[in-house]
């Protein structure tokens, strides 16, 4: 009884620690989710609790819980047969993203506005957009993304490379139009 109570308390701390991070991640990869984000978040933590004994100690806990969050988001989108709507970037995200992409204002051939970036990201395939979010906005390394998306690190590197290339190409295209 005491053990169960301690376990639950510890789990409560985990929820407190990851609540904001995961909610932010969900909002980034599932724009337009609104209030339902909390239902998804609740489901993520329940899954984490039920499968806690299956946690692979060779992984970081963060990668493990992000993996559950990512899978839950994908399942939710599939169930609702919904596609992510137009991406909304906050000012901080916009700054982080453009700086991380090494295309900060002034250094890029064409100045990047927030509108242009969100429009470009909205036109990108989900797999590219997801790795961009994980790497540039969530600050995850290739290995961490590999553990979250359950794919080899080499594939993550390839996806990121293609995503950056596609971002530039879509951005140029829109600019020309």
């Amino acid at each position: 009884m005491i053990r169960v109570s301690t376990e639950r308390e510890a789990f409560g701390c985990i929820v407190d620690r990851y609540e904001e991070k995961l909610l932010r991640y969900l909002r980034r990869i599932m724009p337009g989710l609104g209030e339902e984000a909390f239902d998804v978040l609740q489901e993520i933590f329940i899954k984490a609790y039920v499968n806690a004994q299956g946690f692979d100690t060779t992984l970081s806990f963060s990668s493990w819980i992000y993996r559950i969050a990512h899978n839950e988001a994908v399942n939710w989108l599939r169930k609702k047969k919904a596609r992510p709507e137009t991406i909304e970037l906050g000012d901080d995200d916009f700054q982080t993203f453009t700086q991380s992409m090494e295309i900060a204002h002034g250094t890029h051939e064409r100045a990047l506005t927030k509108d242009a970036v969100t429009r470009t990201l909205s036109h990108m395939p989900e797999k590219y957009y997801t790795v961009l979010v994980l790497h540039f906005l969530e600050g995850k390394s290739y290995e961490e993304i590999s553990d979250i998306l359950t794919m080899p690190s080499g594939t993550v590197a390839t996806l990121l490379h293609r995503a950056k290339k596609q971002f530039s190409s879509i951005h140029e295209q829109h600019h020309d139009e």
Binding site: G12, V15, I46
Partner: peptide, 17 residues
């Protein structure tokens, strides 16, 4: 949220596999 989730876990009688 943690309180809500812990309540829900208790209410549904969930336990880790």
């Amino acid at each position: 949220l943690s309180k809500k989730i812990l309540d829900l876990i208790e209410q549904k009688g969930l336990s880790p596999k």
